[in-house]
Amino acid sequence: MSTSIRLHQVALDLPIFDVTAQSLKKRVLRLGRKNRLAEDNTGVVIVRALSGIDLALEPGDRLGLIGHNGAGKSTLLRVMAGIYPPTAGVVEVRGRAIPLLDINLGMDDQSTGRQNIRLRGLLLGMKDAEIRAKSEEIAEFTELGDYLDLPLRTYSSGMRLRLAFAIATAVDAEILLLDEVIGVGDASFQEKAARRLEQLHARAEIVVLAIHNPQVIRQSCNKALWLERGTLRSFGAVDTVLADYAQHTGLTVLNE
């Protein structure tokens, strides 16, 4: 069974609960009213976050997601990670998919760096033996040395990022889903992260990353997907999609 991601006509409605919608009182009060039809609006705002997404990724594919803020990039990654079940359509993901959406996930301030390696590793679905085997490699990448034995609350945000990134990229993922994470950190870290991602590319079979920087997509992806307001504007080879996107947004800087 080879690794693949297949999305067929995927649509996703996100219910946005405002305070009134999540209140039981409102629900109960509504029961007594007669004009149910007019009152049937429960106050839940439904946002169509994705609609009609079709795509297929094979082993070796590196997909870059582009689009404005709120275009649905993170939501699409969450759908691929299995966090959000789609409202309509079929999502077929084969292989171990590891999401790296928020670097602060499962980072416990009172625990030491090493304890956090275990916590985050477990959250990402690693086994204890796997974590033990990887922890030296992780420690080396973070360059945190003795700091790893200090509680996380003493870390700077850059140190947290290094640790989080090192753990997430240590997992033997077949599918890696990255959200804007490599955009942060200082220059030397960025370079190192890019190198590590390349190594990872050799191991992971499919990589999907959402990122604002078209340069990074050009460097590390072979496919690109342009999302606009939850719909797929263009999907295909990096150059074509980036050119379309550049034309649309009128950003000439993209053309090198």
Binding site: R78, A81, G82, I83, A97, P99, L101, D102, N104, L105, G106, L123, L124, G125
Partner: peptide, 9 residues
């Protein structure tokens, strides 16, 4: 919620 929305456990 932070776990539920970040990883599929």
């Amino acid at each position: 919620s932070s776990y539920i929305r970040q990883v599929n456990t």
